[in-house]
Amino acid sequence: MNGKFVVIEGLEGAGKSSAIAVCQRVLNDAQVKFVNTREPGGTPLAESLRSLVKATHEEKVSDATELLLMYAARSQLVENVINPALNRGDWVLGDRHDLSSQAYQGGGREIDKHKLEALADIVLGELKPNLTLYLDIDPKIGLARAANRGELDRIELEQLSFFERTREVYLNAAKNDSSIVTIDASLPMETVHTHIEKALKQFIDGANA
């Protein structure tokens, strides 16, 4: 079986962590060898960049700085983890990938999409997830869930309008890309997990065909 790249995407509070656990179980049951990644992060240097992105600072972090830090971390992860795994024939299960930058920096920060495309071309080349499971949730609900988890990071403290713009990009991307499967994350957790399991099993069956 050739290596495949599966990504979980969604706003804060959508349930990505539990969704990833479901995907891990499904892949293990199917005897698929895989590696886990998260963005930003996933390598020692990328994890350091993650800390810079998420932490609050005495000085304002410019939108351009945030964008460049995200792609710097992604570059390390792609070169040192994702591409080597796929080239070995392993699968990659990612907690976020480039669609997050399109949504958060492109939608939330309103950075011109052509600038994002230029960076993505440099960092990713032809790399694209084979399957993205997008956990869709109303930002009000998601942010309330996130607040209940504990202290919010710098990005999670943004205004509601930021996340509404972010969600709009996610929804538009899902509408125009057949490799993105939208999961209603506002449903009961058991139902959400059933939908995730079904979508991933269908993808695995197709990859084995």
Rank of each mutant, 00 (worst) to 15 (best):
R154N: 13
D136R: 11
L86G: 00
L86K: 02
Y71I: 09
N87M: 09
K201N: 15
L52E: 12
K4R: 15
T194Q: 15
A55M: 03
T194I: 13
I196K: 07
L49G: 03
E197F: 04
I122F: 13
E66S: 07
G42S: 06
F203P: 02
A85I: 10
V35I: 15
S18P: 03
A73Q: 07
E79G: 12
R50S: 04
G94R: 07
A207L: 11
D112H: 10
Q31F: 11
F163W: 14
A103T: 11
K198A: 08
G94Y: 04
S178E: 14
E156T: 08
A199G: 05
P44V: 05
S62G: 09
P40M: 04
K175D: 13
L152E: 06
E39P: 09
G142N: 07
N172D: 14
K60T: 09
R74S: 04
L116D: 04
V26K: 01
A72K: 03
E158V: 01
A19C: 08
G107N: 01
L68K: 05
L67E: 00
L127C: 01
A21L: 09
E117T: 06
A209T: 09
E197G: 14
G150M: 11
E168M: 12
Q159G: 03
P44Y: 06
I20N: 02
I111Q: 01
L143A: 08
D98W: 06
T132H: 06
I155M: 15
I141C: 00
G41M: 03
A103I: 11
A199V: 10
N87D: 12
F163A: 10
K54G: 00
G206R: 08
D98I: 13
H193K: 15
G15D: 00
R74I: 04
S179M: 05
K60C: 02
E158A: 13
E126G: 01
L86F: 04
Q105T: 09
T194D: 13
P84W: 12
N176Q: 15
E190N: 13
H114Q: 14
A64P: 02
L77N: 12
D205E: 14
A173G: 06
L127H: 03
H57D: 06
A185N: 05
K115C: 10
E117Q: 12
I141S: 01
V53C: 14
K60R: 11
K4L: 02
D112Q: 06
V81I: 14
V192I: 14
S75G: 05
L52N: 03
Q31I: 07
K175V: 11
E126Q: 12
A73R: 05
T191C: 03
G10F: 01
D90A: 06
A185R: 04
L93C: 03
A73S: 14
